[in-house]
Structure formats: C-alpha cells, structure tokens
C-alpha cells in the first residue's frame, strides 16, 4: 500500500492546496457573514461542509490527468493485473495529503465560529464520515475525464450533483450535534451509509473508466 501512496503522491501536484483552499474559503465566508457570533455559529456547519466539499472536488479533479498525459497510466495498465490498487492508492494518497489536514483544521475553524469545545471532536468525526462519499465520486469523475484536456472542469461538473446527499446529511448531522444532539443521529448513520455505498461502487467504476479512457 505504501507503494500506491507514493504512486499517488508522485503525481499529486496540487493536492496540498486542499488545506489552503479549505481554510481560506471558511475564513472568507466568516468575514462575509459578519462579526455576530450567533449568525456565525448557525452558519458554521454549512460553511465548513461546503469548504470541505469544494476543496475535495478540486484536489481530486486532476487525480489521473498527469499520469494519462505522460503515458504512465498506459504503462501501469499494461504492467499490472488490475488498476484497482492504483485507484485505491490515489484515494489513500488523498486521505493522507488532503483529507487528514482538513480534518485537523476543521475543529479549529468551527471553534473560531463559536462552536462549543466539547462538540468539536464530534463535528470532525462527522466530516470524516462524509468526506469519503464526496471524494470517491470525484475520483470516479476524474477517472472518466482522465483523457480529456479540460478534465478538471468536466470532473467538477459530473461530481457536483453527487456531493448533494452527503452535503445535506452532513450539515444536518453536524447542526444537530453542535446544538446538543447525539453524535450518532439517523443523519450521521445515513452519511456513513453513503460513504460505504460509494466505497463499494466507485473504485471498480473508476477502474473501468480508466480502461475506457485508454482505448
């Protein structure tokens, strides 16, 4: 698996931008909303989830672009029994390079928005629960667009609708939790189910899409 992570990292390019984008987006949204803590507090879950969704989509959008363009993908496809380890490596690479820093930054941002300290860990858990669903659909879209020149835009267009369910349930679950509700609300369970569902489907879809892009 380490090899696949290194494979993912070597073509990662702008993945470090995810954390920068995430923080900037949330900070600017906070400034736009204004200094009143009650409105900041009520908008916080939506802002953090939106920032995470956008940062994820943007960082995964070109996941396969470099490898398709420089011929690496073709060699990998010919040399390896299956592209599944490669796709999973890309996903793992995203988790290490982009998702992990965002999950560390999320509680800090939420605290700045006035969320109670004892609710921060739970909110981060919910974000971790929903992020795979967003990331995996974006990864599948990136695989579809691997051979295209303007792939990034195409990827975001395809993946955006799939980000809607995790966004809805993620924001609901987070609002519920920061307002004093239980962590494992029905919304949180649906969020986990969405991620598991995508984890079961999208890697195989992405492999098929990459094969198609190589035809």
């Amino acid at each position: 698996m380490a090899r696949d992570i290194s494979a993912a990292l070597r073509s990662g390019g702008g993945w470090f931008y995810a954390i920068v984008f995430f923080t900037l987006f949330a900070a600017l949204a906070g400034i736009a909303i204004g200094p009143e803590l009650s409105s900041l507090r009520s908008a916080a879950p939506a802002i953090v989830w939106l920032a995470a969704a956008f940062a994820t989509e943007l960082s995964v959008a070109n996941a396969f672009h470099d490898d398709a363009r420089d011929g690496s993908l073709r060699i990998l496809a010919a040399e390896q029994e299956s592209l599944l380890p490669y796709v999973l490596g890309k996903a793992a690479g995203f988790v290490v390079v982009s998702a992990a820093p965002m999950l560390v930054a999320a509680p800090v941002l939420l605290a700045m928005f006035g969320i109670a300290p004892e609710r921060l860990a739970g909110a981060a858990v919910l974000l971790a629960l929903g992020m795979p669903a967003i990331m995996l659909t974006a990864l599948f879209a990136a695989a579809l667009a691997a051979g295209l020149r303007a792939g990034g835009l195409f990827t975001t267009l395809i993946a955006a609708p799939f980000a809607v369910p995790p966004l809805i349930f993620g924001v609901l679950a987070t609002e519920n939790h920061v307002a004093g509700g239980a962590l494992w609300s029905p919304e949180a369970l649906i969020l986990a189910a969405l991620s598991l569902f995508m984890a079961a489907l999208t890697p195989a879809f992405a492999v098929a899409a990459l094969r198609l892009a190589l035809e």
């Binding site: 494979a7 420089d70 011929g71 060699i75 010919a78």
Partner: peptide, 26 residues
Amino acid sequence: FMGHEHAVKPALTAAENLSFWAQTYG
C-alpha cells in the same frame, strides 16, 4: 514500451522516478 512522452514526474528525483517503475516492473 517507451512512448514519445516522458513517463518521468518532475516533482521526483531521477532515482525516485525509476524506483517507482522498478516496483511496477516487479
């Protein structure tokens, strides 16, 4: 197979690039 593109990642050193391919080639 060696295509007309360079399957060489700019961000990695020469040795790192080739180590990756060595693993890929088994």
